[in-house]
Each structure stands twice: as C-alpha cells, then as structure tokens.
C-alpha cells in the first residue's frame, strides 16, 4: 500500500481552556517523515491535548502553529487535514458494517465505487480481517474492533496517523500482540505517526522517539534508550521503569547519605539524589561497599531474584535484581555498589 507521510512541525502550541486551566504550555517539536513519535505521560499531562491540536480537533492558543511539510495547517479543521485517527473507544460507526466503516472516508472523498472496493479489500487483507467485512460492529471482539479502526484510518492513505491510547481498552496479552503488529505495520508503511499512551512499554517499543510529558510541558524528547538510560529529570527517571533513589548531598567531591557514600565528579549540591536501576546494582560485602542496607524481602523469580532493601529512612525500598545463586535472608545487612556510568545524580 502506498503512503506518503508528512513531516510535522509543532511550534509553540499551548492550550488554555475557557475555565482558565493550562492544559498545555507552549511546546515545540518536529516529527520526521515516516517517524513514529510516542507521547508518554500520566493522565492530565497534556499529551491528548497535544494530539488533538496536531489532529485539528482543537486549535492552539494564539501564537501556536502546526505545519505538515511546508503547509501551515493551523487553521484547517481535521476534516481537511487528511489525517487518520484511531481512538481509545475505537469509535466505529454502529450503523455501518465493517466494510462500511472502512469505506466511509473513501466515500466522503468520492472515490469511484470500483476503486473504493479494491482499496477497502486491500486494507482489510492487510489487517487480516477480510472475513469480517460484512459483520456488524456489535458482533466484533475488542481486538477485531481495534483492527477495523486501524483499517478505517489507513484506508484514506493519510499523511499522518494519530493514535490515541489505541490499546488501553484491551487485555494484557492481546495488547502485547497488537503492539507488535502495529509496530510492524508502521514500519512497513513508512507512515508518519503520533502514538499517545500512558503505557511506557508501548511507548518504548513503538516510538522511534519518545516525548515524555509532565504537567503540560515536555519533560524530555529522545530515543527509548536515551529516555531509559539518561533521564534528564527526576520525573522522567522515576516515571520510566523501576528506579531507585537515595537522597543525600554532595560536598567536596563526595556524595553522602544516611546509608553510605562515595566519591563523585560533580559540583557541590546541598541536596542531590543518587538514581540507579535495579539491574545495575552489584551486591558486595557490607564492610567494603559504598552503601549498606538491610534485606527486607526476597522475591525468588526462578532465573533471578528481586530484593527489597531498606535503609535508615522509612521511604521506598531499594529494589535490586540479582542472579539466583546466593541466598539472602531478611534482616541481613548487605552492601551495594553501582558503576559510575549507571549512577545518575538529579
């Protein structure tokens, strides 16, 4: 199937609602032709507002603009932007069959009947739902509905595909399968896509780049690897994956905390926290390790085991993933070390 994805530029797009709430502070970013950008964040972070502005369902505040290639589409409503959109609720038309739904965009565009049928057939085949063509919408399962919704959005060969939490309503195993399928589809079509989700694994798998959003602002833009390994703020660090935090301060080249300290190459900071992932922790003898903590709980998972360690404070436990060889008893004192490149101070 031929598609021509657009390059998308969002410039200083903010959104203030009539009641005065700032859903979105002015944000700017670009999406390359054929790129998939995942917008990730908790509910209320502004990701859906940003998507609706790109889609044309909502205008940005004065001063903001949206560009598809070199065309300023800011004042174009969605029906004239030539985009495809997939909704969390699927939003399939209940008064039409599967085929009627998929053909709708082509019918509106007055595509001749023969060509319309051919293109609908092509998309239904691509989504593996050709046998459902004559079904009514209420006879479909959730997964089938999502496929129809995707087929309907793709049938018009949009320049941009917008997906708003498309898998949220599905159960976990189906979600994972469709995620893989959508990934293959987006890559084979080479279409430009924006994928809004609150599920980090979806964002990390599907996004060529991930935009992490927080309170109407962009917290970080980067590849999945950047976002996970080099978070630039506490919010991003703790939002993606499991992240450990030890609060302390840095003075004269040393990070000091209630559970230990180590030499760092950083300027002094009255308060700083050391961040590290469970998988970057090395367990050592307490007497020689930089940090010393008490084992609180041990979850033996077969191939590995996950330890919950506790320091002096009553905050969140430190999570450590380690191999299955040594056995740890609750109450025992252990030492932990983290390689300098795996340790972040934010």
């Amino acid at each position: 199937m031929e598609t021509t994805g657009a390059r998308v530029r969002v410039e200083a797009c903010g959104k203030t609602f009539p009641d005065g709430t700032h859903a979105l502070e002015p944000i700017s970013f670009e999406i390359a032709r054929g790129e998939t950008v995942a917008m990730l964040g908790p509910s209320g972070c502004g990701k859906t507002t940003a998507l609706r502005i790109i889609a044309g369902l909502m205008g940005p505040d004065a001063g903001g603009s949206v560009w598809f290639d070199d065309e300023d589409v800011t004042s174009l409503p969605i029906e004239r932007r030539h985009v495809g959109m997939v909704f969390q609720s699927y939003a399939l038309f209940p008064n039409m069959t599967v085929e009627g739904n998929v053909a709708y965009g082509l019918k509106i565009r007055k595509v001749p009947k023969a060509e319309r049928a051919a293109r609908v057939g092509e998309v239904l085949d691509m989504m593996h739902i050709a046998e459902l063509a004559d079904r009514a919408i209420d006879q479909l399962s959730g997964g089938q509905r999502q496929r129809v919704a995707l087929a309907r959005a793709l049938a018009v060969r949009p320049r941009l595909l917008l997906l708003d939490e498309p898998l949220t309503a599905l159960d976990a195993s189906l979600r994972e399968r469709l995620r893989t399928e959508i990934d293959a589809l987006l890559r084979s079509l080479g279409i430009t896509a924006v994928y809004v989700t609150h599920d980090q694994s979806e964002a990390l798998v599907l996004g060529d780049r991930v935009i992490v959003m927080e309170k109407g602002r962009i917290a970080q833009i980067g590849t999945a690897r950047d976002i996970y390994l080099k978070p630039q703020s506490r919010f991003v660090a703790e939002f993606i994956g499991t992240m450990n935090r030890i609060e302390g301060s840095i003075r004269t080249g040393r990070f000091e905390s209630a559970v230990g300290g180590l030499a760092v190459e950083r300027a002094d900071a009255n308060s700083a926290a050391a961040f590290f992932r469970p998988e970057s922790v090395r367990l050592e003898r307490p007497e020689s390790a930089p940090f010393r903590l008490t084992v609180e709980r041990v979850h033996f998972l077969g191939a590995s085991q996950r330890l919950h360690l506790r320091g002096a404070d009553a905050g969140r436990p430190i999570i450590v993933d380690t191999d299955n060889r040594a056995s740890y008893a609750p109450g025992a004192l252990v030492g932990i070390a983290v390689a300098a490149e795996d340790l972040l101070f934010l």
Binding site: A55, L57, P77, I78, E79, R80, H82, V83, G84, M85, F87, Q88, S89, A91, L92, F93, P94, N95, Y104, G105, I108, R109, R152, A153, V156, L162
Partner: peptide, 29 residues
Amino acid sequence: LDPALEDAARSLGASPVHVLADVVLPALK
C-alpha cells in the same frame, strides 16, 4: 453518544452536515 464518533467521522473528511446525517442521526434512531 461517544464524542469520539463525531471526531472519527471528521477525521475521515466528513463535513458537519455529513457527520450529522451519517453518524449522529443514525445513532439517535
């Protein structure tokens, strides 16, 4: 009515009149 139904029709190129005739009124039948 799911507001996304109208958004979906619009995203497919439907004008307000088409949205009313093809989506809203049939749903209210």
